[in-house]
Write a protein that binds this DNA or RNA. Structure first.
Lengths: 151, 151
DNA sequence: CTGACTGCAAAATGTTTGCAGATTC
DNA sequence: GAATCTGCAAACATTTTGCAGTCAG
């Protein structure tokens, strides 16, 4: 199992692309952050927060695409009009519950769910490569709040 | 069980909103089309294809939001940056498999899947209101084509 | 050295909004 | 008649692109 860093460099070499300072800075920022989800703007801030030379918005967008292509990030469409990215380098795949009131994202994963999905795909002759499951609703905290403040 | 038309009119009245010609034209266009998915631009074209007075882009967007709010449509994020809408007036909820090669959308539904999701939500104290499951991969037809043309 | 990359600013895309006049209730 | 709508054009937010200069291999 190679490190994310090695994987990225390999990917770039394979495609005849260059290993630049900006690309490495972006990758390192992503590897170092504890955040599981972020969008392009968030990443811009994180990259440029750590002092050093700026990385431009264009480079951030272009690098996000590379990282998505090589599988180190997964592009998700959590909210309207803004692409979010999720680190895949971490553990296994997980899905999301998104609170319609506070926006909180609860991650969960279930082998049972994966297995069922595989079964459904087989029934359709479909070869799954990835999936996104977003359940929207009300989280525990908001439900409690709502119960209290009900007029 | 009231018709979609009645449901929409009721919804508007309840909210103190007006039943305008444009809103009805948009609803009728959606009810008449055989398409299950479309985006705002598609809808613009469909509405204005049938001759008659034009309906503006703003009205289409504003009405899409109303139809989503009252549950006659469901907003989905199938592709980057473009909101898609799906008729819910039809039968029950269903999910999607999306082919990464030809873009084909296969609809499916599974009671087993819904039940499992409910169980997972209960475990998190989460009250589900809606969900979106997109499985991406290769459809049967493309898999067959790939097998043949493999170099 | 050459081709790929960066940063910038400009363009493109999809959606929202302010406003004046029209329409519904 | 009052409040809500419409259509327009302008504003917006996010992402993409063309280009001139820079850098990696």
């Amino acid at each position: 199992m190679q490190s994310a860093h090695e994987a990225f460099v390999d990917y770039l070499r394979h495609k005849g692309l260059k290993v630049t300072q900006q690309r490495l800075r972006i990758l390192n920022t992503i590897l170092q952050t504890s955040r599981a989800h972020f969008n392009a703007e968030d990443l811009m801030e994180m990259v440029n927060a750590s002092g050093q030379a700026r990385v431009s918005r264009s480079s951030v967008y272009r690098t996000l695409e590379l990282l998505n292509d090589c599988g180190l990030l997964r592009k998700e469409l959590l909210r309207d009009q803004v692409s979010h990215y999720e680190k895949t380098s971490a553990e296994e795949h997980h899905d999301h519950m998104i609170c319609n009131l506070c926006g909180r994202i609860i991650e969960f994963s279930s082998g049972e769910l994966e297995a069922l999905q595989d079964k459904l795909c087989r029934e359709q002759g479909f070869t799954p490569e990835s999936h996104v499951l977003h359940i929207r609703g009300i989280c525990r905290a908001c439900a409690a709040k709502q119960g209290k403040s009900r007029a």
